[in-house]
Design a protein around this nucleic acid. Structure first.
Length: 267
DNA sequence: TGCGCATTTCCTGCTT
DNA sequence: TAAGCAGGAAATGCGC
């Protein structure tokens, strides 16, 4: 966020070497698997308070983490994460291992990072105090233990400063198909733009194609976006099986096997 | 600096 | 005739 960026301006650092943070900075063996550095800030800087996530956002986060680590979705049972952000944040390290197996530590690390980031947003003037508050507030002794271990092993001030420095100038947003999916899942935000034709089959139709294109263009800071261009990007999804062709019907598309998070059963 | 990825832009031809 | 579809080709912006 701009706030975090301006805050980080006062921090003298010519490098942003997360790699060293994860390796040489660790005083003892890293208790966590290697997690892609700072990726959560790239994807979730727009909403870094996981406590307030909806079920949809929890699923979205899950999907992003799996994608970023190139982990096959079959490795975890998504239905085990039928919870909102508040419930998610109350899970401890062992809870994650219990419900997500070998992926659990990665997820735990990710959510810990996001919780820390959220606290920084709330009071970026005293990041070390907020980080400590997270530990004190933690009701789960296992979670608390791991948080302490994580923070003190890495010199958490360095962690927090580097976290803030890692905010990109232009956070990578969601992909086009995710943007479309989110309009479908939250029609109240943009009513009348796209509607489900067959909810269970994942078939949907553009009602106001140019308006959707404008909205997409706004998101991408591209005022010249048109439905013609947007639809070309949509057609590229056929090959990747994110979308399937719906023959003979204009403005109608269908989610493919590689599109996640749209099914009602996934809620 | 180069590479890969996900579009974006432009285009021609076809279909509704 | 307009709008949309299909897909090739090249360009672009970004992260790594």
């Amino acid at each position: 966020t701009p706030e975090c960026r301006s805050y980080s301006m006062s921090v003298s650092s010519s490098t942003n070497t997360w790699g060293s943070l994860q390796t040489s900075s660790w005083g003892s063996p890293n208790p966590f698997p290697v997690v892609m550095p700072g990726y959560t800030s790239h994807l979730w800087a727009h909403n870094s308070h996981p406590q307030f996530w909806t079920k949809y956002q929890v699923w979205d986060w899950l999907q992003q983490v799996m994608d970023m680590h190139q982990i096959d979705a079959s490795n975890i049972a998504f239905q085990n994460f039928d919870m909102d952000g508040h419930q998610l944040c109350n899970l401890g390290y062992q809870d994650f291992i219990l419900i997500a197996g070998s992926v659990g530590p990665i997820l735990f690390h990710s959510i810990t990072e996001l919780k820390l980031a959220g606290q920084c947003h709330m009071d970026r003037g005293q990041p070390e105090l907020k980080a400590e508050l997270i530990l004190i507030r933690s009701k789960n002794p296992v979670s608390s233990m791991h948080c302490r271990h994580f923070l003190f092993q890495t010199n958490y001030m360095t962690f927090l400063f580097r976290y803030l420095l890692s905010f990109p100038t232009d956070p990578r947003g969601t992909h086009l198909w995710e943007f479309i999916r989110d309009i479908l899942l939250n029609p109240e935000r943009h009513p009348g733009l796209i509607k489900w034709e067959d909810r269970t089959e994942g078939i949907f139709r553009f009602l106001k194609s140019e308006a959707v294109a404008q909205l997409w263009g706004k998101k991408k800071n591209n005022s010249s976006m048109t439905y013609e261009k947007l639809s070309r990007a949509m057609r590229y999804y056929y090959k990747r099986e994110i979308l399937e062709r719906v023959d003979g019907r204009r403005l109608v598309y269908k989610f493919g096997r590689n599109a996640r998070g749209w099914k009602e059963s996934e809620k």
